[in-house]
């Protein structure tokens, strides 16, 4: 009998130890997701921009996965078309450090196929992102120095600042008023977007003394708070860049998700378009998908 008890205790012990290793000790129960923010009467410029950053980084969602299609039409007619898979997990509700983790794996063309980029972004806006790059031809995960915010995002007309590093608080904001958006014709899709949409107009000025723009005029949808268009001005106050953002609203919580971005460089005439499709939200993605182990799964 004693032997039976000993065997039972041993089995339970082994099971407990095994399970404690197998079960992710950092996993915590999901808190209730926050409400999707919406503009209201009397809203300030700062509150509007805060709302926009929540939309930009999908902070009201748990996670997002999508397929991306990046097109560049350079000033000399050169065309680039890359396809990629992107996953993002928002951790700011359960972590005191990490805001979100982002994984991009390029699927085409073959010259860059399989390249993976894992980025950790921290809640502390002063803290630099952690970046790992998987180079399939070298079979190596390489810790990278984060690119400068002013530098181009994968060779496009967007800067890293515009795509991933700009935060609320990097600029000062001033509400210029309300206006109907005149509409924007996009060559790439041959469509006009947002004609006569009611918008808030906010002026954003960078706090940094020397920066690649002196101010931005941001058009925000009055109904959702989404930034649909922005105009950027250089140090001589000449408009040099515009960015269009088109959204799709995902049920049941009406998430505004960017499905099309176009950046036009007015100095050179080049333009970059990023189209997102197959968007999936709140799938309960595992944190294991944002690790080096996952990066190394890419075979090309």
């Amino acid at each position: 009998m004693n032997r039976l008890i000993r065997c039972f205790c041993l089995t339970v012990g082994v099971l407990v130890v095994g399970l404690s290793i197998l079960v992710n000790p950092w996993a915590v129960s999901q808190e209730a997701l926050p409400e999707v923010p919406r503009p209201y009467a009397g809203i300030t410029a700062d509150e509007l921009i805060k709302m926009w950053f929540a939309i930009k980084y999908t902070t009201f969602a748990e996670d997002i996965q999508l397929e991306g299609d990046y097109h560049l039409i350079a000033e000399d007619g050169f065309r680039r078309n890359w396809k990629f898979l992107r996953s993002r997990i928002l951790l700011n509700r359960e972590s005191e450090e990490i805001d979100y983790k982002d994984m991009i794996v390029i699927t085409a063309p073959s010259q860059v196929k399989g390249m993976g980029i894992l980025t950790w972004t921290y809640l502390d806006p002063k803290r630099k992102q952690d970046v790992w790059l998987w180079i399939p031809s070298l079979k190596k995960v390489r810790r990278c120095s984060p690119s400068d915010a002013e530098d181009t995002f994968i060779g496009s007309d967007f800067t890293n600042d515009e795509v991933s590093t700009r935060r609320y608080g990097d600029e000062t904001y001033k509400l210029l008023g309300e206006k109907k958006f005149p509409g924007y014709y996009l060559d790439f899709t041959k469509k006009t977007y947002y004609k006569d949409l009611d918008c808030y107009l906010v002026e954003a000025r960078p706090k940094k003394a020397r920066w690649y723009y002196s101010r931005r005029i941001v058009w925000l949808d009055k109904e959702t708070g989404a930034n649909i268009f922005e105009e950027m001005y250089d140090q001589t106050d000449r408009k040099f860049k515009t960015i269009l953002r088109h959204y799709q609203y995902y049920t049941p919580r009406k998430y505004p998700i960017q499905i099309l971005l176009e950046c036009k460089n007015l100095r050179t005439g080049s333009s970059s378009t990023i189209i997102s499709s197959e968007i999936e939200l709140d799938q309960g993605l595992s944190r294991e998908l944002f690790t080096q182990k996952e990066l190394m799964r890419s075979r090309w």
């Binding site: 290793i21 197998l22 992710n24 000790p25 950092w26 996993a27 944190r287 294991e288 690790t291 080096q292 182990k293 190394m296």
Partner: peptide, 9 residues
């Protein structure tokens, strides 16, 4: 490759 916890292998 076994991950006993997140970010450890």
């Amino acid at each position: 490759e076994y991950s006993p916890m997140v970010d450890a292998t």
